[in-house]
Simulated scan of single mutants.
Amino acid sequence: MTLTLTEPLSGALHELLAARSLRERNRELVLALVAAGNRGEVNCLTRHWAGAAETGGGTLPDGLGLGLRVEGVVADNDAVALRVTARAQGAAWSLVAELRFDTAGRIEQCHDLLVPRTPAS
């Protein structure tokens, strides 16, 4: 018995692979933003520590020593949810962000929540 792909199956397979590629691309874009933040670049994830610097082109203050550690990433179509632990100058925060990308991979929306971590008693 020879198996052949029918047109509806081929279309469904193409859609599945395209959606997977989109999720993977968007996940990689978010991880690249985290890496850029760790290099000291200002972006939508590091704006909280940037002060008066402009988002997307400035650099973080010298001596800040911001370190971002990815705790989790979930990508679905054009949206990515990210959970990060941020550390700078002896303090720590939890950062949760949702980012949406356009078809060219540019950020359309970035919503985040920054919560200071308090030491356990």
Rank of each mutant, 00 (worst) to 15 (best):
L13H: 02
H48I: 09
F101K: 08
Q109N: 08
L13V: 03
A75E: 08
E24I: 04
V73G: 07
R27F: 04
L60F: 11
R23Y: 05
L68S: 06
L95P: 11
R25M: 05
C110H: 12
A88K: 09
A75Y: 02
E7M: 13
L17E: 15
F101T: 07
D112V: 10
A75L: 06
I107V: 11
S121I: 09
D76V: 06
R87I: 00
R25L: 14
N26A: 07
D102W: 04
Q109V: 02
V34N: 10
L33S: 00
N38Q: 15
H14T: 02
V30L: 13
L45H: 13
R100A: 11
T4I: 04
T103W: 10
T85P: 04
H48C: 05
T55P: 02
A36Q: 09
G72V: 07
L114I: 05
A18R: 03
V73T: 14
L99D: 04
E98I: 09
N77M: 05
T118Y: 15
L16P: 00
L68P: 12
N38K: 07
I107S: 04
V74H: 10
A36P: 00
F101R: 06
E28V: 00
P116T: 11
A81K: 14
A75P: 03
A75K: 01
L60E: 04
T55F: 04
V70T: 12
A79V: 15
A35V: 11
D76S: 07
A35D: 15
A19I: 05
A91W: 13
G72M: 08
H14C: 01
A104N: 10
A92Y: 13
P61K: 09
E98L: 10
G90M: 10
C44T: 09
L45Y: 11
A50Q: 03
W49F: 12
L60P: 00
V96W: 11
R87V: 07
